[in-house]
């Protein structure tokens, strides 16, 4: 790839890189934090950064919001990314609320919303089941 890293290129792309930084902060929270609610917040950050990336692609320098005016020479930014992201925001809140409901349900069953504690409880439960089966097998033989 022949790319010139001149000032023009950097100023034209720095916004994408900043969106990538925001996206990665969200990803880091999802991967590194054990608290389920915080994972959802991280997922939301990631999602918001993707929305910003999309919207930034539709922007035209010197353009205005795509609401038609009487001036025939007006430049409008592209309305299509806006429509897509409007849909995505609403679907995003739907999935977030489903995730939050799952957290409430998990808290009801396990008494915690920390990932490692939930895994530990699961491990203990399956270990107890294995012990039970082994005991019954040794009794019947």
């Amino acid at each position: 790839m022949a790319i010139e890293f001149d000032l023009d290129f950097i100023f034209g792309h720095i916004n994408y890189w900043l969106f990538v930084i925001l996206m990665l902060t969200g990803l880091y929270i999802v991967v590194a934090r054990g608290n389920l609610l915080k994972k959802i917040v991280g997922l939301n950050l990631f999602q918001a950064a993707v929305f910003m990336l999309y919207i930034s692609m539709g922007k035209i320098s010197g353009g205005t919001a795509p609401i038609l005016t009487d001036n025939p020479d007006e430049i409008y930014s592209n309305p299509l990314p806006h429509v897509l992201i409007l849909t995505a925001i609403v679907v995003g809140i739907a999935t977030t609320s489903l995730g939050l409901a799952l957290i409430v349900r998990i808290n009801e069953s396990y008494g915690t919303i920390e990932e490692d504690e939930i895994l530990e409880l699961d491990r203990q439960k399956s270990q107890a089941e294995i012990d039970q089966v082994a005991k019954e097998a040794s009794r019947s033989s």
Partner: peptide, 14 residues
């Protein structure tokens, strides 16, 4: 970034 509709949806929903 000229996305006014997205902005008010994000403010209301997010």
């Amino acid at each position: 970034m000229d996305a006014v509709d997205v902005a008010f949806t994000e403010a209301a929903v997010g």
